Amino acid sequence: MDSLVVLVLCLSCLLLLSLWRQSSGRGKLPPGPTPLPVIGNILQIGIKDISKSLTNLSKVYGPVFTLYFGLKPIVVLHGYEAVKEALIDLGEEFSGRGIFPLAERANRGFGIVFSNGKKWKEIRRFSLMTLRNFGMGKRSIEDRVQEEARCLVEELRKTKASPCDPTFILGCAPCNVICSIIFHKRFDYKDQQFLNLMEKLNENIKILSSPWIQICNNFSPIIDYFPGTHNKLLKNVAFMKSYILEKVKEHQESMDMNNPQDFIDCFLMKMEKEKHNQPSEFTIESLENTAVDLFGAGTETTSTTLRYALLLLLKHPEVTAKVQEEIERVIGRNRSPCMQDRSHMPYTDAVVHEVQRYIDLLPTSLPHAVTCDIKFRNYLIPKGTTILISLTSVLHDNKEFPNPEMFDPHHFLDEGGNFKKSKYFMPFSAGKRICVGEALAGMELFLFLTSILQNFNLKSLVDPKNLDTTPVVNGFASVPPFYQLCFIPV
């Protein structure tokens, strides 16, 4: 009986604490739906499609509103004006990374994606500088992407125009580009180590996009005490870190300090320079996690976009025909596509942009946080508050993009057929937390897609009208449904 009384008292205290925290903070924060004790607004949000729920709530509470995930307040920004004001106009104040408990377990605050403060700034600055020195957006990395595009075309030829699921092959190409940047090595598509790495990356994007992960991140005790797919994700990350550590040891034994070959060499050189400046942010643990982040951000996002792009091109054969006509006119058949071609191919450029806009790969991006107490639109948001960005509300804005739910390359073309930029184009987020590999991803999408369409016609196994382009999961990332196609050599 005594234990029951204690339990009831504990629960009562928890409920009172929950109510007090919510009521004391709500006077400062933007308005929002009334949260339930302990669980907050979790029942009012469709976990399978958070973005749709945010759109519905914005119609009631406006472009800036507050939700509670458990006891934790989260300020939501919906629509271009609110997102721009926060991420661009007040970029420094909104540059923090929001709480992501599962990532905390995986990387302990290291790396480039989930770190904060001085650690994040130094690692991000170093990573950007190193990638630029190796030619991100310049010639040397373009050579690597072109080489991988040629290998991709050869792998597709091996399908002999038979029906195939493109998931694996389209994942190999961007993964190999990242391998060449980090390890100075590309792998054969049949290499077992490479296959294991690909498998872990593919599993992780599916797990991260599941409703279960949303629950884990908002009720963090689940991570330590409950079984579930989150444990598989943590094991996959541990596998990748151990693999990278092996490569780091190989580099330490063979590195030429006067001739760095890749990202690992550059990081080890930085560690050597910083060894007298303790404590340094440049450690082996930081290198492991930064490399894992580059793999995660640079492989599955690009391969998922490529997979979605081919599905949309199957669905819209008239678009595919126009792209192939432009390829034939500008590039021809006797040389590989290059980035200089893009400025002469406005329709193809528009298609690449429209694919990214339409699929809305990361509907709410990753959570941000404010780095200080900030007054925002007459609300006071306390330091450390998590900020949720609705990228969907920007990419699918119906004023900027008429009929935003329709796939239409003319969203990025003017009346004369010239490519038209849009400030609403934010597939990689915006501001200080914009994806480090934005330029690389854009290069890969253009070169891989043009190389495929230069060499193959795409054949659907069903009537294009019957192809479903609805994402199968739409949590962290929008993942396309399973499909097969035939690559018919031109």
Score class of each variant (00 low, 15 high):
Lys119Ile: 07
Leu361Asp: 08
Asn231His: 12
Pro33Gln: 00
Ile264Gln: 03
Glu300Trp: 12
Pro101Ser: 14
Arg125Val: 08
Ser336Leu: 12
Glu438Ala: 12
Arg342Lys: 07
Lys72Ala: 04
Lys423Asp: 12
Met339Tyr: 13
Leu201Arg: 03
Met345Gly: 00
Phe69Ser: 09
Ser460Val: 02
Leu453Asp: 00
Leu361Arg: 11
Ala86Ser: 06
Pro101Thr: 10
Thr348Gly: 01
Asp49Ala: 06
Arg335Ser: 06
Arg150Lys: 09
Lys138Met: 10
Gln340Gly: 08
Val319Tyr: 09
Glu438Met: 05
Tyr61His: 12
Gly384Ser: 06
Leu11Arg: 00
Leu19Pro: 00
Phe226Tyr: 04
Phe65Asp: 01
Pro73His: 05
Cys13Arg: 01
Phe487Thr: 00
His410Lys: 15
Leu467Glu: 02
Ser451Asn: 15
Leu458Asn: 00
Met406Ser: 13
Val370Asp: 00
Ser429Met: 07
Pro337Ala: 09
Thr305Lys: 02
Arg150Ile: 09
Asp191Leu: 00
Arg150Cys: 08
Leu388Val: 11
Ser209Arg: 11
Val292Gly: 06
Thr450Gly: 03
Phe126Glu: 02
Gly27Glu: 08
Tyr61Ile: 01
Gly437Phe: 14
Ile389Cys: 12
Phe219Glu: 01
Arg357Thr: 01
Lys190Leu: 07
Gly25Leu: 11
Phe114Ser: 13
Gly475Met: 07
Arg139Met: 12
Ala441Ser: 06
Leu458Ser: 03
Val479Lys: 13
Gln146Glu: 12
Phe183Pro: 00
Gly475Arg: 09
Val351Pro: 00
Trp120Glu: 06
Ser220Pro: 08
Pro221Trp: 11
Ser254Gly: 10
Cys338Asp: 06
Tyr68Thr: 04
Met269Ala: 13
Leu313Thr: 03
Pro211Gly: 10
Arg125Ile: 06
Leu14Ala: 09
Pro163Tyr: 05
Lys315Asn: 03
Thr386Val: 11
Gly27Ala: 15
Thr34Arg: 12
Asn41Phe: 00
Ser365Leu: 07
Ala149Lys: 00
Ser115Phe: 07
Glu203Thr: 11
Phe187Asp: 00
Gly296Thr: 15
Asn474Cys: 15
Gln324Ala: 08
Ile222His: 05
Thr305Gly: 03
Gly417Pro: 04
Ser478Cys: 11
Cys164Val: 12
Glu300Cys: 13
Gly25Arg: 10
Ile207Leu: 10
Glu155Ala: 15
Val355Gly: 00
Phe114Leu: 12
Ala103Gln: 13
Glu154Phe: 05
Ser53Ala: 14
Gln214Ser: 15
Met345Phe: 00
Ser127Cys: 13
Ala321Asp: 13
His230Gln: 12
Leu453Gly: 01
Tyr189Val: 05
Ile45Ala: 07
Pro101Leu: 05
Gln214Lys: 11
Glu85Pro: 02
Ser24Tyr: 09
Val462Leu: 09
Gly91Pro: 08
Ile244Pro: 00
Ser254Glu: 09
Arg108Glu: 11
Pro489Met: 00
Gln454Pro: 00
Asn259Glu: 10
Lys84Phe: 09
Lys158Arg: 08
Leu440Asp: 01
Val319Ser: 04
Lys420Phe: 05
Leu234His: 15
Val248Gly: 02
Phe126Lys: 04
Pro221Asp: 11
Ile359Arg: 04
Thr392Asn: 14
Phe239Trp: 15
Pro363Met: 04
Cys13Ala: 09
Leu306Asn: 00
Pro404Lys: 02
Val5Met: 13
Thr229Val: 13
Pro63Thr: 06
Leu195Arg: 13
Leu445Thr: 10
Leu388Pro: 00
Gly442Lys: 12
His316Phe: 09
Lys375Ser: 07
Pro35Tyr: 04
Arg333Asn: 11
Lys247Asp: 02
Pro30Gln: 01
Ala297Arg: 14
Tyr61Val: 00
Pro101His: 14
Arg335Phe: 03
Thr364Arg: 12
Glu199Val: 09
Tyr308Gly: 06
Tyr243Trp: 14
Thr283Asp: 14
Tyr68Gln: 08
Asn455Asp: 06
Val490Phe: 10
Ile222Met: 14
Gly431Val: 07
Lys138Cys: 12
Leu306Val: 04
Pro382Leu: 04
Glu288Lys: 10
Leu314Glu: 01
Asn258Gly: 14
Asn334Ile: 12
Phe401Lys: 03
Lys48Ala: 13
Asn378Ala: 04
Thr385Pro: 00
Phe412Met: 03
Gly332Ser: 06
Cys10Tyr: 03
Arg329Phe: 12
Gly137Lys: 13
Val323Glu: 02
Lys235Pro: 02
Gln356Glu: 04
Ile222Gly: 05
Phe456Ala: 00
Ser162Tyr: 07
Tyr61Asp: 00
Thr320Ala: 15
Ser242Ala: 13
Tyr358Glu: 00
Asp265Arg: 03
Ala309Arg: 00
Pro211Thr: 09
Glu92Arg: 05
Asp360Tyr: 02
Gly98Trp: 12
Cys10His: 02
Ala291Ser: 08
Leu71Ser: 13
Val351Arg: 02
Ser115His: 10
His78Cys: 09
Leu234Met: 15
Ser303Ala: 14
Pro427Ala: 10
Asp408Arg: 04
Phe134Pro: 09
Arg342Asn: 04
Glu104Leu: 13
Phe376Glu: 01
Leu440Asn: 02
Ala441Thr: 09
Tyr347Glu: 02
Pro37Glu: 00
Tyr424Ile: 06
Cys372Glu: 15
